[in-house]
Simulated assay, not measured.
Amino acid sequence: MENNSNAIAEIQKKYAGCNLLMPAATEVQLNPFYKITVMEVTADLSENSGDIFKVGSVKTGTTQQGKDIWEETYSPAKPLLMKIAAAAGIQFDPDHTYGTKIDANTYKAKAYGAMRMPDGTGKTHADEKVICLDDEEANYRVEFMDKSIKGITDEKAAKAAAEMFKGNWIDAKNKWGKACKAYVIDDCDREKYIERSVLVNMTLLRKTAAAKAMTGAILRVIRALTGMKGQYTKKELQKPFAIPRVTFSPDYTDPEVRKAMLSQGMNSIGSLFGAAPTIAAIPDALTGRERDEFNPEEFADNPAFASDEAMVEENAGGEQNWFDETPQQNSESEANEQTGYICDECGAQISDKVYSYSINKFGKPLCVRCQRGAH
Rank of each mutant, 00 (worst) to 15 (best):
K364H: 04
D308C: 06
R289Y: 13
Y357H: 08
N336K: 13
T287K: 01
R289L: 15
E313G: 02
M311S: 09
G288Q: 04
K364N: 01
S263M: 06
A304D: 13
S268T: 08
T326E: 15
E298P: 10
E309H: 08
G265I: 04
E345L: 09
T287L: 04
G274T: 05
A276I: 03
P277A: 05
S358A: 08
E309I: 15
S358K: 01
N330C: 11
D284I: 06
M311I: 07
F299E: 12
Q329R: 13
T253C: 00
L262D: 13
K259V: 01
G274K: 02
I342Q: 13
F248R: 08
F273P: 06
F323D: 12
L272F: 11
A281S: 02
G363K: 00
G363V: 04
G340E: 09
D251K: 00
I359R: 10
G317N: 04
P303M: 06
E345R: 07
A276D: 09
D284C: 05
I359N: 04
E345T: 05
E332Y: 10
A304H: 08
A310V: 06
T326M: 14
A348W: 02
P277S: 09
G265E: 03
S307F: 12
L286R: 02
I342P: 11
M311D: 12
A304F: 02
D254T: 03
A304M: 12
E332A: 06
S271G: 14
F323Q: 15
K353E: 15
Y357K: 03
L272I: 14
N302D: 05
C346W: 00
E325D: 03
T339S: 05
E313W: 10
P327D: 10
P327T: 10
N302H: 07
E256C: 03
A275F: 14
Y357P: 07
S307K: 07
D344P: 04
S331R: 14
I279D: 15
A316P: 01
Q328V: 05
W322V: 12
P296R: 08
A260D: 07
I350Q: 00
Q328G: 11
N321Q: 04
F299H: 05
S351C: 05
D292V: 14
D292R: 08
A280M: 13
K361I: 05
M311Y: 06
A280L: 13
N267D: 14
K259Q: 11
F305D: 00
Y355T: 09
S356G: 09
N315I: 14
F305L: 02
S271E: 14
A316E: 12
E345A: 02
Q338R: 09
S268W: 08
R258Q: 00
N302S: 04
E337F: 15
A260M: 05
D251P: 01
G318N: 02
N360W: 12
N360S: 13
Y341H: 13
A280G: 10
S263W: 10
F294C: 04
F362S: 10
E337Q: 15
A348T: 08
E290D: 14
N302R: 03
A275W: 14
K364E: 09
Q349Y: 07
E332W: 10
K364I: 04
E290M: 08
C346S: 00
S356W: 03
I359H: 01
G363D: 11
P296S: 08
I342F: 15
